[in-house]
Amino acid sequence: MTLAQQILWGSVYLGICFLIELVLLTWCTQTIRGMALKLEESKRFVTIAAPICIALVFIVAIHTFQVWLWAIVWVLGETLPDWNTALYFSLVTFTTLGYGDIVLGEDLRIFGAFASVTGLLAFGLSTAFMVALMTQVFKEELMS
């Protein structure tokens, strides 16, 4: 893959992952809002813990989905030999851990780096979402 192709396709997959995260975090927000109305009369512990638990389940699912998406790219592109290797490499790259025991060829290094950038952005967005959620939850609990 040429440098321009790596940048193009890396940007495409990064964009797809970012779009998936935005859609699912929006769905998560709507789910939490709907649930909050049902839990108004619940105990304080439940009204605090439930939104946080729901958000964490969504976030883990979102990140897992993105890791799988990158693994699919590695397997279908015949870059990595099997699903185990592809998932391992995808997860290690997405989390920016990067052990280095599996290394892409020179023609895919930039493209592979986009998987890492995707993870950085995903974790950053998820962290910001959790901070905003917890700020709102605690603000509402302090006012009640």
Rank of each mutant, 00 (worst) to 15 (best):
Leu80Glu: 06
Pro81Met: 10
Pro81Asp: 04
Pro81Lys: 04
Trp83Asn: 00
Asn84Val: 06
Thr85Met: 01
Ala86Asn: 01
Tyr88Lys: 00
Tyr88Asp: 02
Phe89Ser: 02
Phe89Thr: 02
Ser90Ala: 06
Ser90Pro: 03
Ser90Gly: 02
Ser90Val: 02
Leu91Val: 05
Leu91Phe: 12
Leu91Asp: 06
Val92Leu: 10
Thr93Gly: 03
Thr93Met: 09
Phe94Glu: 07
Phe94Leu: 08
Phe94Thr: 04
Thr96Arg: 08
Leu97Trp: 14
Leu97Arg: 09
Leu97Ala: 09
Tyr99Ser: 14
Tyr99Asn: 13
Gly100Met: 09
Gly100Cys: 11
Ile102Asp: 05
Ile102Glu: 09
Ile102Lys: 12
Val103Ile: 12
Leu104Trp: 11
Leu104Phe: 14
Glu106Pro: 12
Glu106Val: 12
Asp107Gln: 15
Leu108Trp: 11
Leu108Pro: 10
Leu108Ser: 11
Ile110Asn: 05
Phe111Gly: 05
Phe111Leu: 13
Phe111Met: 06
Gly112Phe: 05
Gly112Pro: 08
Gly112Ile: 03
Ala113His: 10
Phe114Val: 05
Phe114Gly: 03
Ala115Pro: 01
Ala115Met: 04
Ala115Ile: 01
Ser116Cys: 07
Ser116Lys: 04
Val117Glu: 03
Thr118Trp: 03
Gly119Lys: 04
Gly119His: 02
Leu120Ala: 09
